[in-house]
């Protein structure tokens, strides 16, 4: 007996590559790697939120318990982790904004006749991606300077 994939109802092909497709599945464009980065940063932020909420629980133990946990979190390894969380937030937020605008059609531009050599809407709107990446780098460097100083 065959089992149908949930939500697919014969409309989609099965995802044969699975997680491997995050890294390679053919001739990927820049946006496809941003898709992977969006998921990786999202999972990292989800892990951070879980740890952050668990850490907040130490507040219930009173002032001594709070000071103890803050001493542990003040160590240099955690500071590096804190910076990575900030960088992940910047990447996830800006790329998420780009995805929302794109999904709603605002950044796709007007349709063009299919004249050879064919250029899809993603490639035509590539400057938006470069601008977003430049902003991500600028903000990540700024936050790094704030962390270091």
């Amino acid at each position: 007996m065959k089992t149908k994939a949930a939500g697919s109802e014969n409309r989609h092909l099965p995802n044969r590559l699975g997680i491997k497709s995050w890294v390679w599945g053919g001739n990927y464009t820049l946006e496809r790697y941003l898709y992977t980065l969006h998921r990786v940063t999202g999972l990292g932020l989800l892990l951070y939120i879980t740890l952050h909420l668990a850490m907040n629980g130490f507040r219930l133990g009173g002032v001594e318990s709070w000071i103890d946990i803050m001493e542990i979190l003040g160590m240099s390894g955690f500071k590096v982790g804190e910076y990575l969380v900030a960088a992940a937030f910047i990447i996830h937020a800006l790329n998420g904004g780009r995805l929302i605008l794109q999904h709603l059609g605002y950044t796709l531009g007007k349709p063009k006749p299919p004249v050879y050599p064919y250029v899809d809407s993603l490639r035509r709107r590539r400057p938006i991606v470069w601008a977003m990446l430049a902003l991500i780098v600028a903000l990540a460097v700024y936050v790094l300077i704030v962390f270091v100083t």
């Binding site: 089992t3 149908k4 994939a5 949930a6 939500g7 697919s8 989609h12 099965p14 995802n15 699975g18 997680i19 998921r39 999202g42 999972l43 932020l45 989800l46 939120i49």
Partner: peptide, 21 residues
Amino acid sequence: HGIHGLRTIIMELSIPKLPAK
């Protein structure tokens, strides 16, 4: 946002209906 995002990632793996439920 986090839990729905995690669900989206898992659902992309074409899991059958019952495990999805």
